[in-house]
Nucleic acid binder design. Structure first.
Lengths: 194, 194, 194, 194
DNA sequence: CATGAATGAGACTTCATTCAT
DNA sequence: AATGAATGAAGTCTCATTCAT
């Protein structure tokens, strides 16, 4: 029953340990031995599951991104108004970041030293951006919002998403996700002006 | 005539080379020899001006942050409306990031491995945030904008600032800074809603 | 069967190699790689057993000093006359130095660059001196020898001990340890005068 | 009049500074710049007088050895009895070591890393030994002392000389040179036995 | 003559990865 | 399958020496 004993189980444990250590020390200051120690296994064992330190890092990120998108996707999202979609996006993001502080600390760092990683990260970023563009465009088409520049609208919304992570990582901001997303959606929809 | 021959001049050249190489490869994948090569000097010479790789990195960042704030400060800013202040902030930021792509790529990465660096970066971040809070609060007090939650307003504005850097770094977005800042200010002031 | 394969065994091999190389080249002119080569292992392996070059040097010295004192200590020494004690001391010293030329070459050098090492060496020296003082004083109290200045007597005896090492190190003096110690004891006891 | 301004004068100043720094830090931990600083001159200037760090070290030693022998040599020595010769040797040695603590600290260290230095030091040692052998042999021939083994007698006397330096270097032994040399000569001539 | 900025060879040490057990 | 002892490539930093001024 112990998942530690199953192949997939040990893999997950290694990834979980990698998240802990990488988020604390960064990629280059993390030694494989530390991850092994955190996982309660031997150094060599990691190499049974991952071919290199970089590959472990990549797979950890991929797993993280997948979990992130899963947390965001919502069956009923299609039917909702743009306003509600944005609100849900803010809320899901906030919740995910809060529940996965260590992971998101790594995911939202954009110091991607490795070329392959850079490209992969860029691709992910583009996907997210594309999705948001479509969202906004649909809002405009439906007449829900003004005929704004889609690129700039995305820029604002994704900027809020990013900022929504910063305080979680740096400080210990205690907030109510639902409340904050409602207020931020208001801000994004109606702006600062009276 | 060449400033390369003066004491301060060589220091500047080293920092300029450090920006180039660090931004391309990141801190850990940059070898001191590469910076020296880029600066057209010998490996050991860097140590005549900076006591270690980390110190060079720190001083480079400090120089960068100083230049950033200098580019943002504006004598006449005090008299302006919040709207204009925000617009100018967007524009200055946009220009600085555009003119200092490599430098900002390093500045806005938040992968600060070193503890001292982390604290310094956090302090800078807090200063910037404090400044923006004061700005918003003043706007509220003057009755220029709605009585919004200052923290969330700052979050939106700084999110836009961050996003405003991403496209410059990742892609080669050709834009007119003034035009974009006007439109973004509109968005931030009046929101998406019709 | 080869002790080289056991944990403690490899440690000993490294120390033995260190003695060889350090005695030949001195601390600063010895490269870690040379010691590794002499031990038939890789450069990095030394660091599995010793945290630094200095620590290897220190542990080597400590091991040497311990062996030296073990070779000097004698169960029955207590019962003997001062004359016999001195003779045995000379003989043990002579034998140890002869059997451990390389090691003693390092041990009796007093160029201890490191502050901690200096203090440790001074402490050892003081212990040895204290032991010899007690020996001489006991001889005086028992009426075995004249009422000489203990400090000066120690100075003479330890000087002989030191000199007894020099010819072994510098030249290849072929001697009979027992014969030499008998004669030197005579000299020390009765002097040069007829 | 300032000897600092004359060629030979500056050379002497460099050697004096070298003695200070080398004795405090040892050869390898001494940087040429430190010697220059102590001499109040520029780093490059040392190379006008000495071709390398090693050569400076060697010349410093040679100067020291010469001074040592000058302090020992005595016109009237020839006429004296062996007893008086030995006493004067002890006294001169003691005085020289006391007046030149830093220099002798270097001279009596036998950690001679460099091959050429080793051989030179060995030659000096042999000269000193030869001189003492002749001294003792003469004493025997004249019937002043017993027919002892000359090698062993030299060993004892030179051992005393060596020990006579140790307390000066390690501690701050306050002694009367004449008094001590008289007592030690007694010890060497008549031994410990009653 | 004197200088000190510049240099680069060289040494310690780290740590990802391998592989015999 | 799991391990961890062994490895050696690679990188930072030091400092004797040079040479243009």
């Amino acid at each position: 029953m112990k998942e530690a004993r199953t192949k997939a189980g040990k893999r997950d444990i290694i990834i979980a340990s990698a998240i802990q250590v990488f988020s604390r020390k960064g990629f280059h200051n993390t030694r494989m031995e530390e991850i092994a120690l955190a996982a309660g296994i031997g150094k060599g064992t990691i190499y049974e599951y991952f071919s290199s330190k970089l590959q472990l890092f990549q797979e950890m990120l991929e797993t993280g991104v997948e979990a992130y998108y899963n947390s965001m996707s919502n069956e009923e999202l299609q039917q909702l108004s743009l306003r509600k979609k944005i609100r849900l996006m803010f809320e899901s993001h906030l919740k995910f970041c809060h529940e996965n502080r260590e992971l998101t600390k790594i995911m939202f760092q954009n110091d991607f030293f490795d070329q392959e990683l850079k490209e992969w990260s860029f691709k992910i970023h583009k996907q997210k951006e594309g999705h948001m563009k479509a969202l906004i465009q649909e809002g405009i088409d439906r007449g829900e919002i003004k005929d704004v520049d889609v690129n700039l609208a995305v820029l604002m919304v994704s900027g809020v998403l990013h900022s929504l992570w910063v305080p979680l990582g740096l400080e210990n901001w205690q907030i109510d996700p639902t409340e904050v997303s409602v207020q931020l959606t208001d801000l994004v929809m109606h702006g600062l002006a009276r």
